[in-house]
Write a protein that binds this DNA or RNA. Sequence first.
DNA 1: TGAAATGTTGGGGCG
DNA 2: ACGCCCCAACATTTC
Length: 472
Amino acid sequence: MSAAIVWFRRDLRLTDNPALAAALAAHDTIVPVYIHAPDEEAPWQPGAASRWWLHHALDDLSQQLQGRLVIRRGASLETLQLLVEQFGAAAVYWNRLYEPAVVARDSAIKQALRAVGVAAWSGNAALWFEPWEVATRQGGPFRVFTPFWKRLLELGLPSPGPAASAQLDGRLAIRPGTVTPGGTSLAELGLLPGIGWDAGIAAQWRPTRAAAEARLEEFLATDVRDYPQGRDQPGRERVSRLSPYLHFGQLGPREVAAACSTGRHSAAGFLRELGWREFAHHLLFHFPHTVGAPMDTRFEAFAWRNDGAQLAAWQRGRTGLPLVDAGMRQLWRSGWMHNRVRMVVASFLTKNLLLDWREGARWFWDTLVDADLAANSLGWQWTAGCGADAAPYFRVFNPALQGEKFDPTGSYVRQWIPELANLPPKWIHRPWEAPPAILHEAGVTLGSSYPRPIVDLKATRLRALEAWARVK
DNA sequence: TGAAATGTTGGGGCG
DNA sequence: ACGCCCCAACATTTC
């Protein structure tokens, strides 16, 4: 028996953690490690909201490890080699990730460790299946969701692994409070913002394993019952809100699937959404260039507009379209946006404003606590009509109509755009059409207290249809 | 995981 | 009572 390093990355949990379980099975001493090396993920190093979450998730994991999580900053390979030497470790264990830059780094690390006689082991904590385990009859990757999903159901969703906390007693390498040579504290990683813009995020979220478990349980006991309809209404919040926990691996997809199958209510619709998450990761693995290039090559020459003022208006929720602005303000203030509204704001950016989907992807990347490269790339390409199984080109969301359908009372808009709070439901999604008396009574002055629409919905819809028709 | 235009139907007002 | 028109409600087609 010997010591092993367990290299935590985005698998920040002790239960259903294959790397940790494998290390415990073969070694008597465990060195849990987190290495901060954001440059190695460039150009997709975690954004500001994501770093905030990461800080707290690491803090929580460290507490679960009785304060014995070793935190380092520096190049991953060199740091691992130093730790191997320092602790006399025979092996390094981790769970795989699927972003192109990380895949390249990890395979180089695996080779380098083995070359110097250190065992390197990697497992799967992030997905139900490995991307290479799910293939069409022709043997290639799926490009369409529905057959992919059918195949997953045929294969059967796998069960989670065991909880490891009990086995860890007495087997962690360092004592609490011990400062190891070259060690770093969590605070020194500088993940938290310098200025206090995170108050809104902190008020909304509890980035801990215990909170993830509680949220999963609560969701399956209540909200999931009318998920098929309820999930589309941003004012009602009948959604899981589990995405950031899944991204950082505080919760594993196998754990979620297992909980769904034992719940009192059918969770089929929700599981299908997790199927989209799985699909996104498999696609990213098989088509790594889709983080920056359209999957549909006909879009390579697409003439996206360039308009800094309109982009800024979209980013900060000043477009004059209430549902769009409510969503963008929710994102900015809370680090998250309801899924229905994500589709609406993405359609507005790409179709009505004709701005590049990569601008939207980058903004989401920096502002979402659940920012995930696979889901982000798939989602934006889906909306722009240039991705796998993409939305048909003629699908252009009308923010006013979407608001009237899915936020009929206007409660969502009222929550995030207080200056419109006194408008009646009939006009809250189209204030520019409201009679002057109604606006006056509600204290709304278009152009000063709230913007007029920055584009004409009808005209820009037609412009988009023409532009996309030219691609065909 | 659309929206808008166009087509169809049926009830009610009215001469 | 009847035919005509209007239009809302719903269905279909088109982008």
